[in-house]
């Protein structure tokens, strides 16, 4: 029987909150990559409008972490868990912001009068980013360091696709120079997707720390 019931209940409640937030953010990112394809106006608005929920939750989770640290002074795996939550919480919130940014870029592109709205097919890059995010979050949920390590490999593919997007946008800009804003927003989609991949990698690094107690930095 655990002897610190209150403390361990607090940790479990915190874990549940983090998982709720994780699910919310994963849903936002899936919607964001959908609107890159569909330009669905209602979905774009709903992504932008609902961001406050994630922001509020981030603050709540951070407050919980600080309270638990002050009151219970955790050590060993409990300490590593709290440190991981504090850092992952921040990464998740920023991923939520990236989903909003994608929605805003799509909104600008949709309203453009350019005949060439799509400079690059983002479906493959989106798929890789979603896979990385899902793997990092699954690794976090299951505390699976081996899965976390696999994420590092996919990141290379995402970076390659971002470079291809850049080349495609530069080419389109020379072909359709009358709508540079539309093209720049097209490239920003690649940047936002890449940043989500970076943050998924950061989460994977934190999972390795949580499980193994070793600080790993890929870059």
């Amino acid at each position: 029987m655990p002897v610190h019931h209150t403390f361990h209940n607090e940790l479990e409640k915190l874990n549940q909150k983090l998982l709720t937030m994780v699910a919310m953010v994963e849903d936002r990112v899936r919607k964001a990559v959908t609107v890159i394809e569909t330009h669905d106006e209602e979905l774009v608005k709903s992504i932008i409008r609902s961001d406050y929920q994630i922001d509020d939750m981030e603050v709540e989770i951070e407050e919980d972490c600080l309270k638990i640290m002050a009151l219970h002074q955790p050590v060993a795996s409990d300490l590593r868990f709290l440190i991981t939550v504090i850092k992952v919480n921040n990464e998740i919130e920023r991923i939520g912001d990236m989903a909003v940014n994608i929605a805003k870029r799509v909104d600008v592109i949709s309203q453009s009068t350019s005949v060439m709205k799509g400079a690059f097919d983002y479906s493959e890059m989106s798929e890789h980013v979603i896979t990385m995010l899902k793997m990092s979050l699954d690794a976090l949920v299951h505390r699976d360091a081996a899965m976390a390590r696999q994420i590092f490999l996919i990141e290379d593919k995402v970076n390659t696709l971002r470079n291809q997007a850049y080349d495609a946008v530069v080419k389109m800009l020379s072909l359709y120079p009358e709508h540079p804003g539309c093209m720049i927003n097209n490239y920003l989609l690649a940047r936002h997707l890449e940043r989500i991949a970076d943050r998924a990698t950061n989460i994977a690094e934190e999972v390795i720390y949580l499980v193994e107690g070793e600080i790993v930095r890929l870059r």
Partner: peptide, 19 residues
């Protein structure tokens, strides 16, 4: 020892899961 104990019993004791 207090951040990354190597033994399960140490981990359980210092995190209050022992007993």
């Amino acid at each position: 020892v207090f951040t990354n104990p190597r033994h399960q019993l140490t981990e359980d004791y210092i995190t209050g899961r022992f007993g």
